[in-house]
Design a protein around this nucleic acid. Structure first.
Lengths: 208, 208, 208, 208
DNA sequence: CGATAAACGAGACGGTACGTCCGGTCTTGGT
DNA sequence: ACCAAGACCGGACGTACCGTCTCGTTTATCG
């Protein structure tokens, strides 16, 4: 175990702790009102009551700022125990869709994903702050299903990890695509149908 | 029903047909080199050997232009008959991933999706030019599987349409999320695992 | 002999002629209100009802702009015939001092001179637009005095040119130094004393 | 001669005396390298090994600092006895021109003069630190010429003071204008011609 | 075949945001 | 008490694009 900041700052005036939160909140507010392309760092700084330089001192640019601002949104996600794996999936899908439907997530998330295709560091930041952070939901859901006896225990740890990635991409991908690309709402019916296909497959037994 | 060109005007110099193709090609080339955020309409015009005014005469802005430029890419998708539904799915997933991995699609697609969250007309354009256009693949695959006896015929036409939408979001969403958000490659193994879960579900029988 | 503008501009929208005058007038107005160091190009552009880019398209920066704005002021200088060389000198000294006392000249002139010490191109611009342009006054005054018989005709043209330069530096320098460095007013008495020393020297006969 | 630190104070200020000199030297060095407009107080502080706050504690701003830094330069001026008034004038003109030609004086002097046109306190500081301080040279030169019998003794003390001012403006003004505005070198020939006109006037007897 | 009309290239235009730099001020902790 | 370090707010910098406009020119169809 090591200190993450080997020699952080011994001297000079320390950075304002309050400013960080104000900036991220201002970023989300600006995303709601103006969307990604309308968001300007000058405007964010003004909303946060902070100078533009302060903002640039802490983030490399618009992309990094928005990743951090959006990442916080997804930390609200919970996996309440609804009694069955199918119900748990439906629940998390609806929660995820509700967050994605908020305008600050809607226009911010895909924009930074787009930018990340040409920026390795940004890609890593998204993975760390958003993707890997939310895979906990898949792990939790699987463990709970295994405890209930709905899923068999894992034998191969490597395969288990790959399955987590696959399921995460399938769940998150479907919701994102439905919400943002197809631009259709995620209803309870849709979530129900999705959970059914995910659990039983296209060729599996019909719903009831 | 409406006329697409209310007053075609017989007189005056006609628009150059060659220019359209040159502009879209230049747009893709610029996307490859500069990415979405680095792309400027002035640069596209210069690459296409065209004045900026010509470009604005035909497209409302960057978003519309990129939608058209990217949409053409996905028309390459085919559904070759590989003998089984699982193999067909794997094939189309790999093809789709190959296109998505190209830089002009990578940074262009999610960018316009992001922009579309605040622009109804753009949303419609994406749906028309990209989403609905590629749902043909799901329809084709289902018909082929039904012909093979792998899937039962449809009873309810309404439910059948909803299933197409769901499957499309699940397939496209998973590939997009894997490629762009998780930023991991879509390998044959991944495509195989995905097809298996899609067909048999998480609780279904194992592959062999 | 050649055309001064060999291939000026055949194509594209021509530059607005009205803008130039508006910008120079706005520059002088801003100099009056804000002084050299308070003058910003953004403010000048706003006053002139012009975009900042238009301004940068025509001038390289603040220095060049101010040289042009100030140079116009000195074109007002005239050498009215007051009957004797001494009276002519007094007259032009008072006129020159009156212009120099205007705030737009006061703070602008020495500032660009200061900047020009590190910028050869600016030095040349000052010489062309201001210094050489006003040497006409010395030439005119000398010719008039020679016509009156107050000064002998020139023999050596080289020496005559040097003398013009010397006299110009002495007259302009004394007025500038009195006005801006010593920061004392140029009164009629001062102008009278100056003309007397210039014409008769420190060791010459007294005035009356 | 007196100690500059009247109350040495046992605690605290070991650097105080050294810092002043270091800052003024750093200011001149920065003027040489960067010129007036390129000079920043942060840079001066860094060069002097001093914090920016220390600098602001002692000077009100860039202008005051530069006045002090430049004023020291002119204290080098001496009036060596060259045997005649004409020769003395030539000598001091060449010395003055040599100092003015140094880059730290060149770009600093006229810049603060320009700024002083809108700042009464700065104007006073320039007069005290530079102008009045160097008028000693005129006084000294006149006294020496009177001792030699080249100039008559003064009758009216008021007129005598005015004459000092006039001569100072004429000498300093001509050299400054020649060096900085006309941007031509002050050679021995030029100094000779200038002294001759100053002493004998334009209409006076020729040089020999 | 000449008139008419639209599209064309070129590039200047008014705006807006960028990311950087500096000016001055204010906290820190150190001596 | 003073200092160095450096974060802070504010504001100008010069640049880049945006989308519009004004030109003179080219290329059609129609009368």
């Amino acid at each position: 175990m090591q200190r993450p900041t080997p020699a952080p700052r011994a001297t000079g005036r320390p950075r304002s702790a309050a400013a960080n939160a104000a900036i991220l909140a201002a970023t989300r507010a600006a995303l709601v009102e103006l969307g990604w392309s309308g968001l300007t760092l000058g405007d964010v700084a003004a909303r946060a009551g902070v100078a533009k330089t302060t903002l640039y001192r802490r983030w490399a640019g618009k992309n990094e700022l928005v990743v951090d601002a959006v990442a916080e949104l997804f930390d609200e996600l919970r996996l309440p125990d609804r009694g069955s794996l199918a119900a748990d999936i439906e629940g998390v899908v609806l929660q995820f869709a509700a967050i994605l439907d908020r305008p600050e997530a809607k226009s911010g998330l895909m924009a930074v994903v787009s930018e990340s295709t040409r920026d390795e560091a940004l890609r890593a930041r998204i993975r760390t702050s958003i993707v890997d952070r939310q895979k906990r939901l898949v792990l939790e859901g699987r463990a709970r299903a295994q405890a209930r006896g709905e899923l068999p225990p894992e034998n191969d740890p490597g395969a288990a990890a790959h399955t987590v990635d696959l399921i995460f991409d399938m769940v998150a991908g479907a919701v994102v695509h439905r919400t943002l690309v197809s631009a259709e709402p995620v209803t309870e019916d849709w979530a129900h149908g999705f959970a059914q296909v995910l659990l039983q497959g296209l060729t599996g037994r019909p719903a009831h």
